[in-house]
Design a protein around this nucleic acid. Structure first.
Lengths: 192, 192, 192, 192
DNA sequence: TTATAACCGAGACGGTACGTCCAGTCTTGTA
DNA sequence: TACAAGACTGGACGTACCGTCTCGGTTATAA
């Protein structure tokens, strides 16, 4: 039986120090060379304290990254769909390609491959909500006749995000603003 | 001074045993739990021999996977572009979702995130050629008027591959045959 | 910066298990074939734990042997110098020629040749005190007129121990009780 | 069946290069850090060639050292026993304490502890003859009445050599010329 | 206002794997 | 067939982290 710690008594100071240390190490040495040992040392914290609150180093970085991701990938609704999509996707691209959040997020994506719990967490806390927001934005455009009724909006979202992640996992240069615009143009055309 | 071993004197028996052991272990335990130590033990080979010929476990699996990838993702030219694309992309999807090659390839993609040499090797030996083949196929279609002149075929390829890799890295279920067909339909429509 | 571990938190169970395993292996396989790896395995201990508390396998065996050496080479003062010396030297000879302590001690002597720290430790913890005890015993005899005033007692001790170590390093049979007695006789005669 | 190589076809050039390389490495890095690998590399010789002609690195160094030892520890017979002994023993002390032969000889002595064949070889080729020469010299002195008839000359030799080896194995400073003289004085007194 | 339970730092522990080194054997091609 | 060159299996090295587990010491509710 794993005793569940009481979150109310959690030391907020340690909490923040751990997140900061994790992000800092990730920026300096790259995700793969971040270790729980090093995070603990830099944060002036016991390893036990890390393991008490997170299941893995990926989870630590996920929390460290999560808020930043949300604030960096806003999804406005200005009424102009193409512009809104461009704003959002540019945020994603920028996030994926700039330290310290970029490498951290990359590492998390990698770790999902052999950590189911992490994969689930990412899906629930990060990707899912973003996808739903995107689908929502497309649906509102659909209602206004900008997109064909009956169009598979989930597929549309994947066609938008897909090429970005594709370039990312294959370590190709991130798409330029123009390329993003062109991508959006093609997708919207094929769905309208 | 890194002494370069003489490839002519390489033991082909050990070579093959290592590749087989690596693939086998990957299928059984998953990429993350494959270790150089275990590969050496199963192949009846000394660790030194592995380190002599490959820089990392990822490189071993890359070689083990490379040929199979090529044979599993053929790119036919039957004259029917949509069908040819479907054949090719189904191959990719199947590869990514079936052992032993699937997990191995997944692991390699992950490892690219923190191993530049591996990333380069994958690009040169696996992805690059496949992308070029795809672009070539699209170009021939373009010449025959199936695709708009001046269309950015590189973007088209990314729009095809992108959603597949997207689902893969986010660990969503691989796209069904119908979804692949739908995706191809949208892309071709937007480029014609 | 070599972090110094806290001796208070040392696991006495592991400590003893390591010493026992080291002595056992030494008796079974001979000093040269004792490895840190094997000690760790037999003691059910991690290698790190050994390296945390000892700098080398020689140091482990030194500790394992040290107490035993002291108890096996007593230096009585019965009033009869020749007898006391015989008691003491017989102990040394017996120690050097009987497992498990004999081979262990031999190995340590060998290793001193290429391990300065070990050499120092042996001198301080084992040989030095024994030599001083011997010198002390001789001095008390000197005071009682058994040995010539002004005699170089250090040389006397070396003349006693020397032939024993000589036979040992050259792997000659250990001196018999009679030979020891004869040796003592000669030395005492030359110093009285 | 281990094919016995034909000594007539042996390459004298390689033979000498190996001995020279072995001694050189021993002087530079110390016995313990000499490896067959390094000897082969420096001598421009294949490891196989070394293993063909010698059973161990100790044997190589033994051969490299043997001649030198004989020439450095002459045993003259000038008629003055004490002087002759002093000449001989000073040679031994000097040999044990000066590179490159000193460390090499030390190493060989160490290795005897876990290499029976080497121990036998040292005894037969190096120590035995020297001891016999010493006994011979003492016997001639005995005949001339300098030593007591019936004295155990073997013991006498051990009492001379012993303290020297004692200091050596315990890594104490080598005895000074005066100390050697004093030692010889005591031994001769006790045997006359 | 204690006391008592928790979290906390520190870090030792059993382990697994790392990447390196060398031993000693085996193979290939040259002289 | 002796040799140089060097690839091979095997095994130990000493290190780095893993995740678990005490230890005292400090807090912060609940008696």
């Amino acid at each position: 039986m794993t005793a569940i710690p009481n979150p109310q008594r959690r030391s907020e100071k340690s909490h923040q120090a751990i997140l900061a240390a994790a992000l800092g190490l990730c920026a300096e040495k790259g995700y793969a060379r971040v270790t729980v040992e090093a995070i603990a040392a830099r944060a002036g914290v016991s390893k036990k304290t890390i393991y008490r609150w997170w299941p893995s180093k990926g989870a630590v970085l996920l929390e460290a990254v999560a808020d930043a991701v949300v604030t960096h990938t806003p999804f406005p609704d200005t009424g102009d769909l193409a512009t809104d999509l461009h704003t959002h996707m540019s945020g994603i691209v920028k996030l994926l390609s700039s330290p310290p959040l970029g490498p951290a997020y990359s590492g998390i994506l990698s770790e999902m491959g052999h950590d189911d719990a992490l994969a689930r967490a990412v899906d629930e806390e990060l990707v899912g909500p973003r996808v739903e927001a995107a689908v929502g934005r497309l649906r509102s455009a659909q209602r206004q006749g900008e997109l064909r009724p009956g169009a598979d909006l989930g597929l549309a979202v994947e066609m938008l995000y897909g090429p970005v992640y594709y370039r990312h996992v294959l370590r190709r240069p991130p798409p330029s603003s123009e390329r993003i615009a062109s991508l959006i143009g093609h997708v919207l055309r094929s769905f309208s």
